[in-house]
Design a protein around this nucleic acid. Structure first.
Lengths: 186, 186
DNA sequence: CGTTCCATGTAAAACGTTACATGATTCT
DNA sequence: AGAATCATGTAACGTTTTACATGGAACG
């Protein structure tokens, strides 16, 4: 009855970038990956045990004063990762609370939706600023060289955020256009 | 320790559109709402019991030959729905398997990523065609009148799908540009 | 008469977050 | 010394899907 097991592969993927501890892995999810993936401690530590049990990684000899445990991918783990990478991506189940609310709203709730959209725009613009500056920094760093593959994910952050902002504004305008104009058919 | 309880409000939201059964509700999730929300039977039927227990809805007198149970929203349920609608939307936790894979890939896996992107584009284009035709039909139907609020969610489907297709193509091109050109720094 | 759809529901498993417990190290 | 961060882990709870069970009605 196993489902996708994305947590497993997400962790293996991180380990392909270098041996590290559960704590480090968590940080990656919370930093560079947070725009499109995250995992909590409650998932990571038990999964690391599983990973070792399956022989996908091994704990390096621990003589760390803080009892830090560094995990290193095995050949078997590398192979499992690569095989996952090749599989077709499973259909994403996207859930969007803002859209859900809008889909239920009638013209009587226009004011409420207007507020939600305004708040959304301001959050998206804040986030876009940061994404754009990261993009700018990377462009400077790599100049005429080829960008690393993950640069594409940053680009996605930028373009999808821009698109959502545009849509929010369009929505805002179309709701404002019918203000005071409520001989509504609902 | 209760979390968001979106399932509850999603069902109440559907019930504001008219009294209906669990089966009908499921159909809504699987049809008009499926692009941004879904719930399974395992969530819906137990939640309907909860909803009745809290007095948010009542089962209408059941004399249906198929034992169909129609639920009708109460004033209390209507109020709960409206109060949810007004709350700020909780931060969405977005998970994107395609981006996750791309973020892990090195230039050695370019071929794999290329295939994933091609498949993604073809799926998105298929889905876009359907969204655009729905949009077209609605524009015809409403002509110069104001569109229903949920038309905005359809628009979002169109614009976000278009944006993702554009990004996929951009990504495809930038990966193709470095083909055969692998003196890679990784 | 068989297939498809209507209709309700439950149990088990899988997935995921939050809160807590514990203690060392580093920084100010 | 006190605060922040590093570091591992578990228990409880919450969320969601999947598989199964059951049976009636509609359609060809």
């Amino acid at each position: 009855m196993k489902r996708n097991n994305n947590t497993l592969y997400a962790i293996l993927g991180i380990l392909t970038k270098g041996s590290q501890s559960g704590y480090d892995i968590r940080k990656q999810f919370n930093e560079s990956l947070r725009y499109f993936w995250s995992e909590s401690y409650g998932q990571i530590y038990p999964m690391l045990k599983e990973i070792v049990r399956h022989g996908y990684a091994e704990p390096l000899d621990a003589n760390d004063p803080r009892k830090k445990i560094i995990y290193q991918l095995t050949a078997k783990g590398q192979a499992a990762f690569l095989s996952w990478l090749t599989e077709p991506v499973s259909p994403m189940n996207y859930r969007d609370e803002l859209l859900l609310r809008i889909s239920f709203a009638t013209p009587h709730e226009d004011q409420i939706i207007l507020s939600l959209l305004e708040r959304e725009i301001s959050e998206l613009e804040f986030s876009l600023t940061s994404l754009q500056s990261q993009e700018h920094n990377l462009r400077e760093k790599y100049q005429q060289e080829h960008y690393p593959t993950w640069f594409l994910t940053l680009r996605y952050g930028v373009v999808s955020t821009e698109a959502r902002i545009e849509w929010c504004k369009e929505a805002l305008h179309s709701l404002e256009a019918r203000k005071g104009n409520l001989h509504d058919p609902f």
